[in-house]
């Protein structure tokens, strides 16, 4: 495959994704709403991912606290570990880590499920019975992610900061009271808004890309595997890229408003 054909395919996919996004957004608030499916997806995507984000949050927080405590000790300011942790975690690490973990677990599942339905003609069957597949399959997953990803991000933030506390107290020999005082000092409304804006964008990214990749699956079982892999890769790269753009362009604006 030469460079020109890669560029062509990327442009074609981007065009398809854009049109699909408009179609999806046109349906997210219109009837019929599949509430039962939405609640089921909230349980599957949200509660099902809880253990994963708790584990990754704790270990990521501990790793970061270990590194920072050593560096800060060199400047004689290891007592500020709580401040550094809360800024890094609430603004960047928590939303991005949670988004990536959920993308890896959930995007793969969504794409594989819809892709399998496509290759076994179940999507055509839905249409033949007068059901809009986007409304039935994509919209509930979109809303489930929009509700659950921010909740999971808050959980990730909390356990990562708590993981830092364990390191601060038991390894870096920082007083627990000092750590929490520094945490609360930087747990400001601004950091909270910046950190909690991102999961909504990441949720939309995961929902749009994973369902689009599922619906555009071709080539049977091998096609499902390919779509699933591409879906996780596309979601992960998009999350990191959009996170960078958000931090670069919107965070200063938000800080200016507060």
């Amino acid at each position: 495959m030469n460079l020109l054909s890669i560029i062509k395919r990327f442009a074609y996919d981007l065009q398809g994704l854009t049109f699909y996004s408009f179609r999806l957004f046109g349906k997210i608030l219109s009837r019929p709403m599949y509430l039962m499916e939405t609640f089921e997806q909230m349980y599957f995507l949200g509660v099902g991912s809880l253990f994963l984000v708790v584990l990754t949050g704790v270990f990521a927080g501990q790793g970061m606290a270990l590194q920072f405590s050593i560096e800060l000790a060199d400047f004689g300011s290891k007592n500020y570990l709580g401040r550094v942790m809360v800024i890094a975690i609430t603004r960047e690490l928590g939303p991005v880590l949670c988004g990536l973990m959920v993308a890896a677990r959930v995007a793969a599942g969504i794409t594989a499920e819809i892709g399998s339905m496509k290759s076994s003609e179940q999507i055509e069957a839905l249409r033949a019975f007068g059901i809009d597949p986007i409304r039935k399959l994509a919209v509930p997953r979109f809303w489930a992610l929009m509700v659950m990803l921010p909740v999971l991000t808050i959980v990730t933030d909390f356990v990562a900061i708590y993981g830092g506390y364990i390191i601060a107290v038991y390894i870096a020999n920082i007083s627990g009271a000092v750590y929490w005082t520094n945490v609360t000092a930087k747990l400001t409304l601004g950091n909270f808004i910046i950190g909690l804006s991102k999961p909504f964008i990441f949720a939309a990214i995961i929902a749009i890309i994973s369902t689009y990749m599922g619906f555009s699956t071709v080539g049977g079982t091998r096609g499902v595997g390919r779509s699933t892999t591409e879906s996780v890769v596309a979601c992960s790269i998009s999350i990191l890229f959009i996170n960078f753009l958000f931090t670069r362009l919107l965070v200063p604006q938000i800080q200016g408003l507060l």
Partner: peptide
């Protein structure tokens, strides 16, 4: 309109 798909296409 009832549509019987090749292979059934039942919702698995």
């Amino acid at each position: 309109i009832g549509f019987v798909f090749q292979g059934g296409a039942l919702f698995d």
